[in-house]
Simulated assay, not measured.
Amino acid sequence: MSDTGEATGLADLLRARIRDVPDYPEPGVMFKDITPLLADPVAFAALTEALAETTTRLGATKVLGLEARGFILGAPVAVRAGLGFVPVRKAGKLPGATLTQRYDLEYGSAEIEVHAEDLAPDDRVMVIDDVLATGGTAEASLRLVGRTGARVVGVAVLMELGFLGGRARLAGSLDGAPLEALVTV
């Protein structure tokens, strides 16, 4: 969004529909539940429009959504922007030839993958997810895109949990592409 007033109004609308759930999934955690936002057609449409505008402005040719809520946000953004959608799944969920990227979690590791043929070197990719927390999954997705030869033109999230340091973690992996968060907590 280019206008500061519009951006503030959108952030307020979105923030009002994100519910805090204390002590979930474990004691001491304040979970940010976006399901009330998804259930509100006005807020969901405004979110989709804002992300689609960013995607178009950055010249993306494909939208990449991270499992699972990145699918919910990224698919309608791709439709609205007139682009293809590429899901990044947890390992073992995609049939056929895939590229896999392993990454570290706080306790252990995980793997994500994408179909090997879904991205080409001439693709300009917009990565979309619901939340940027520690940045591990987003960083792994940037590595996956790089391995296909495609170029990331931006990363956009509904909400950034700034206190978890995800932005700093991604700084070296973005290669000049912007990271945009509609709401920062």
Rank of each mutant, 00 (worst) to 15 (best):
T137E: 02
G172L: 03
T134E: 13
G172A: 09
F163R: 05
I128D: 01
G172I: 06
A177V: 06
M159E: 03
A133N: 05
D129I: 00
L179C: 12
L174H: 09
V131P: 03
M159C: 08
G162P: 13
V155S: 14
A177Q: 09
R169K: 07
D129M: 04
T137S: 00
D129P: 03
D175A: 04
A140L: 05
T134P: 11
L132S: 06
G136E: 06
R167T: 09
L132D: 01
L179G: 13
F163M: 13
V157H: 05
G136A: 00
V157G: 04
R169W: 04
G135C: 12
R143A: 15
L164M: 11
G146P: 03
P178F: 09
R151E: 13
R169I: 01
R169M: 09
S173N: 02
L144M: 07
P178V: 03
A177S: 09
R147K: 10
L170C: 07
L179T: 08
M159N: 04
L144H: 08
R143H: 12
D129Y: 01
E139I: 02
I128H: 04
I128A: 03
L170N: 08
I128V: 06
E139L: 00
V145K: 04
G162H: 14
L158W: 00
G149N: 15
V157C: 01
D175C: 11
M159L: 12
G154H: 15
L158F: 04
L132R: 07
L164A: 08
T134W: 09
L142S: 07
E180R: 04
G176S: 05
A156R: 06
A150Y: 13
T134M: 13
L170G: 08
E139P: 07
A168M: 02
A138T: 02
V153D: 15
S173D: 08
L144P: 14
R147I: 11
P178S: 07
L170E: 03
R143I: 08
R151S: 05
G162K: 02
T148W: 14
L142D: 06
A150M: 08
V145P: 02
S173E: 03
L174P: 14
R147C: 05
T148H: 15
V157W: 03
G165C: 10
G166R: 02
P178A: 11
I128L: 08
L132E: 04
S141H: 03
A133I: 10
A156N: 08
V145M: 02
G135F: 13
A133T: 08
G166V: 00
G166A: 03
V152C: 15
E139S: 02
L179M: 10
D130P: 02
A133H: 03
R151M: 12
